[in-house]
Amino acid sequence: MRVPAKPPLEGLKRTLEKKRAQAEGARLPRDGFVRETFSLPREAARAKAREWLERWPKQAYWTEIESWAERPGNVIEFTMRRLPSAD
Rank of each mutant, 00 (worst) to 15 (best):
M1S: 14
R2D: 07
R2I: 06
R2Q: 04
V3S: 00
P4H: 08
P4W: 10
P4R: 11
P4S: 04
A5W: 08
A5S: 13
A5P: 08
K6E: 11
P7R: 14
P7F: 15
L9Y: 06
L9T: 13
L9S: 06
E10M: 13
G11F: 08
G11H: 14
G11V: 11
L12N: 00
K13R: 15
K13A: 15
E17I: 05
E17M: 10
E17N: 01
K18F: 10
K18R: 04
R20D: 04
R20G: 00
A21V: 07
Q22A: 14
Q22M: 05
Q22F: 14
Q22N: 06
A23F: 01
A23N: 07
A23I: 01
E24S: 12
E24H: 15
G25V: 06
A26C: 09
A26P: 05
R27Q: 05
L28G: 00
P29C: 07
P29E: 05
R30M: 00
D31I: 14
G32D: 05
F33D: 03
V34L: 12
V34K: 14
V34C: 07
R35F: 01
E36V: 14
T37M: 12
F38Y: 15
F38T: 00
S39Q: 09
L40F: 10
P41D: 00
E43H: 15
E43F: 15
E43T: 13
E43I: 12
E43P: 14
A44S: 15
A44C: 02
A45D: 03
R46S: 05
R46Q: 09
R46T: 10
R46F: 10
K48C: 12
A49E: 07
E51K: 01
W52G: 05
W52L: 10
W52Y: 13
W52R: 05
W52S: 07
L53K: 01
E54F: 02
E54H: 06
E54D: 04
W56G: 06
P57M: 06
K58V: 10
Q59G: 07
Q59R: 11
Q59K: 14
Y61V: 09
W62V: 03
E64I: 09
I65G: 00
E66P: 02
S67N: 11
R71L: 15
R71C: 13
P72Q: 09
P72F: 04
N74V: 02
N74T: 04
E77L: 13
E77K: 12
E77T: 15
F78R: 02
F78K: 02
R81A: 08
R81H: 00
R82N: 01
R82K: 06
R82E: 09
R82G: 06
L83C: 01
P84D: 02
S85G: 11
S85A: 13
D87W: 10
D87P: 06
